[in-house]
Simulated scan of single mutants.
Amino acid sequence: MSIQLQIDQLYWQINNKTILKNITFDINKGEVIGIIGPNGAGKTSLLHCITNQQKQNKTSQLNGTVRLNNKFISSYSAKALAQHFSHVAQKAEAIFSLTVIDIVKMGLLPHKTLFAMNNDHDRQQIKRALDKVGLGHAQQMHYDQLSGGEQQRVLIARALVQKAKILILDEPTNHLDVYYQHQILQLISQLNITVIMTVHDLNLASQYCQRLLLLNQGQLIADGSPSSVLTESQLSTVFRLPCVVTQTADMQKPRVFFSLPSQQGAHNA
């Protein structure tokens, strides 16, 4: 595999509070990576730094380097970054009044001049992307008429049209029911591009990610396969709860179960 992203000794502090501390890892082309950890661990902050979207001001201190294709991330223009990264956020309220096809068309913007018109090739790209996510029938529907899972699929279709090399997702299954959680993550894992996403549910991360990064208090605690990262000792320490990890017989993936300590559970009953 060829290295696509290199993060080296990344350190970020805001108002004397350490957000990320000396984080180092590489990302290979085509990997599906899940970033996991408790709330406040630095997961979303790490995504911001990877894509050069971190907020910097007089009270912040950012050290270390992020390289994309062996070039410093800060050397890329915003348009060039949009040709490499596509970001799917948890919510997209600003586009609720638009139709599905209008939203997916936005993926063309990084490849167009200001007043360029869409051509037949562009329209074919949009159609293929919508067909791939199973929404070819919904082009003229309004975004706010769709279910949560369908809305996420629209945003993924926009990312496909954008032709980004790396797909960035921040909690893509948040607010979705179980069926759509699996539908979205299965789709993402089959796109054949590099995927970096924060995932709240450890069992979903185990099932759909090739590699996991475990963060805690801004530090990278573990980096590796789901089996090597999702261990009882590491998870019990990071999440501060007793933990049992089993192995599924059908998929050979670890399954994680947490429980409150017996005394605390009895006290709260």
Rank of each mutant, 00 (worst) to 15 (best):
L47C: 01
L169G: 00
I101E: 15
F72T: 07
K58Y: 12
Q181E: 04
A138R: 05
Q13N: 13
L68I: 10
I188P: 01
P254V: 04
S228W: 05
N70R: 10
D122F: 05
V195S: 11
Q247H: 03
S147K: 01
S74F: 07
I35A: 05
L169P: 00
L98I: 00
H121C: 03
H121L: 06
G265L: 14
F85G: 08
N39E: 08
A138M: 15
Q61L: 15
L46W: 10
A249D: 07
M106L: 15
D122M: 00
L98A: 09
Q125M: 14
T44Y: 05
H182L: 11
Q234R: 11
K79R: 10
G134L: 04
L220D: 09
S60T: 15
V229P: 06
K29F: 03
L187I: 04
N192F: 01
E232L: 03
W12D: 06
A41F: 05
H200K: 09
F85T: 12
H267D: 13
A269D: 15
Q186G: 12
T113P: 04
F258I: 10
S206W: 12
M251C: 05
L46M: 12
S225V: 13
S206R: 10
N39F: 04
D250N: 08
V178Y: 09
N22E: 14
N118Y: 08
A157T: 05
I19Y: 03
D26Q: 07
A222L: 11
N69W: 09
